[in-house]
Simulated assay, not measured.
Amino acid sequence: METAIIKIGNSKGLRLSKTILEKYNIKDKVEIILEMGQIVLKPIETPRKNWDVSFEKMHQEGDDTLLLTDVFDDEDFEEWK
């Protein structure tokens, strides 16, 4: 596919079609990767999106307890003073 470089203010850019944006799930940002003479655009996903909602649900269901006991319970912190 060929596309023209367009002027955007003092910069230049390229326009991606709606089809490409939807097919590759490109929202607001892309990562630009330069490798072996090529420019690769990679969609940026937000992997932690809505974690707050999930954590709240875990708390409400009592599923947010520690799986391991505190590793410092038996430590003598006096030697560190």
Rank of each mutant, 00 (worst) to 15 (best):
M1F: 13
M1L: 11
M1C: 11
E2L: 15
E2M: 12
E2S: 14
T3G: 10
T3S: 03
A4L: 13
A4E: 09
I5Y: 05
I5M: 01
I6N: 04
I8A: 07
N10P: 11
S11A: 14
S11D: 11
K12Q: 13
K12N: 12
K12R: 14
L14E: 03
L14M: 08
L16R: 07
L16D: 02
K18W: 02
K18E: 11
T19P: 10
T19H: 12
T19D: 13
I20L: 09
L21P: 06
E22G: 09
K23N: 15
K23C: 14
K23R: 15
K23F: 15
K23D: 14
Y24T: 04
N25V: 10
I26F: 02
I26V: 02
K27A: 04
K27T: 09
K27E: 11
K27F: 04
K29M: 05
K29W: 01
V30D: 04
E31A: 02
E31Q: 04
I33E: 02
I33Y: 02
L34V: 05
E35R: 14
M36R: 14
M36G: 08
Q38D: 04
I39P: 03
L41Q: 02
K42R: 13
P43V: 01
E45Y: 13
E45A: 10
T46V: 10
P47K: 05
K49T: 06
K49H: 10
K49E: 14
K49G: 05
K49M: 09
W51A: 09
V53P: 07
V53I: 12
V53R: 07
V53G: 04
V53C: 07
S54E: 12
S54L: 14
F55Q: 06
F55L: 10
F55M: 06
E56T: 01
E56H: 07
E56G: 03
K57G: 05
K57H: 10
M58K: 06
H59G: 14
H59F: 15
H59A: 15
Q60E: 08
Q60W: 05
Q60C: 03
Q60V: 03
E61R: 01
E61P: 00
E61D: 04
G62Q: 01
G62V: 01
D63F: 00
D64F: 09
D64E: 09
D64S: 03
L66Y: 12
L66N: 15
L67Y: 14
L68Y: 03
L68K: 09
L68W: 03
L68M: 11
T69A: 15
T69N: 15
T69Q: 15
T69E: 15
D70I: 00
D70L: 04
D70W: 00
F72E: 10
F72A: 08
F72C: 08
D73R: 12
D73Q: 11
D73F: 00
D74G: 09
E75M: 12
E75Q: 14
E75W: 05
F77S: 10
F77T: 06
F77A: 10
F77E: 12
E78G: 08
E79Y: 04
E79F: 07
E79R: 14
W80S: 14
K81A: 12
K81H: 13
K81V: 12
K81N: 13
